[in-house]
């Protein structure tokens, strides 16, 4: 690998890390606060991608403009799913919610195949292939924009969690649910908002991904897996931890992709196993399990 290729890989990895952080943060807050490993996270992401695709294909809506639409729709959908489905088993052991979200993911994916067919599809705005050269390194506009938007959304989430009443209620609930109840926090609503936020962030990631990569109904699973590995890498419960995890993971994925392009998912799992063996508390040092 020469130095140009190396620099290109570094740029690619950086750009990828933004989107991956966005995918993982929604997954992480749901896991950290509700203690649910949401296997349907990738399915929400896929729906977000399709919302952007259809709005673009049918109505010519610019894919970046459809981002808030897919976020709002999935926020509502996520709220309802938590409030009227998962809420009934929230006191159940982790395995039960695990199975429930697994079932949800299969159902969503199957419905997507039925209604939208299994073909690969692409969102192709006029600026899709454009970019600029940084020296000799190519930077596609859409990926740069996706990277920046991911960082902005992550920052907004941080502000929301720190400075709003609802954000504080969510954090408090994650730390001590009974103490939160004693301060008047309505747990059912708070859980539903948390889950809805997770779904909206997944949708945002899906919309952004659809502009740079082809989409299909099965695309979600690979992202759920990556979100899982990133949370294990970065430790649960902290946004900086997740961002670090995503950065690290993006580098592993981009560089291993050069040597073994067909082993992407296997490598994710390999990293997971290695981390669990070497440093089970995650890189950030905080236990990822509760």
């Amino acid at each position: 690998m020469n130095s140009l290729e190396l620099t290109q890989c570094i740029v690619n990895a950086l750009l990828l890390s933004g989107t991956l952080a966005l995918v993982a943060i929604g997954f992480s807050i749901v896991w950290g606060i509700l203690n649910i490993i949401n296997l349907a996270h990738g399915a929400f992401l896929m729906i977000g991608a399709y919302i952007t695709y259809w709005l673009f294909t049918l109505y010519g809506v610019d894919p970046f403009l459809s981002l808030p639409i897919s976020m709002i729709l999935l926020f509502i959908g996520g709220y309802l799913v938590q409030r009227y489905l998962i809420n009934f088993v929230i006191r159940a052991p982790l395995l039960v919610t695990f199975l429930l979200t697994f079932a949800l993911e299969i159902i969503i994916m199957n419905l997507a195949v039925v209604f939208w067919k299994g073909d690969l599809r692409s969102v192709t705005p006029s600026y899709a292939g454009m970019g600029f050269a940084l020296g000799e390194v190519q930077v596609p506009y859409v990926r740069l924009a996706a990277f920046i938007l991911s960082l902005i959304l992550t920052g907004l989430l941080h502000l929301f969690m720190t400075y709003t009443k609802m954000g504080n209620a969510i954090r408090a609930t994650g730390m001590d649910i009974d103490a939160a109840k004693l301060q008047g926090v309505k747990i059912g609503h708070t859980y539903a908002v948390t889950f809805a936020l997770g779904a909206a962030l997944a949708a945002a990631a899906g919309s952004l991904i659809s502009i740079s990569f082809p989409i299909d109904p099965t695309m979600g699973g690979a992202y759920t897996l990556r979100a899982f590995v990133i949370c294990v890498l970065g430790g649960l419960g902290s946004i900086p931890g997740v961002m670090m995890g995503a950065l690290l993971y993006a580098f592993i994925e981009v560089f291993s992709g050069i040597w073994a392009p067909s082993l992407k998912d296997a490598i994710a799992l390999l990293v997971l196993v290695l981390v669990l063996i070497v440093r089970p508390t995650g890189i950030a040092g905080k236990a990822f399990y509760h």
Binding site: N168, A172, M175, D176, A179, A180, Q183, G184
Partner: peptide
């Protein structure tokens, strides 16, 4: 039963949540 990861101010203000 404080919220261990939150600041003192955030904890105190949680009391006024409603």
């Amino acid at each position: 039963r404080l919220f261990a990861g939150m600041t003192v101010k955030e904890n105190i203000m949680m009391g006024a949540y409603l």
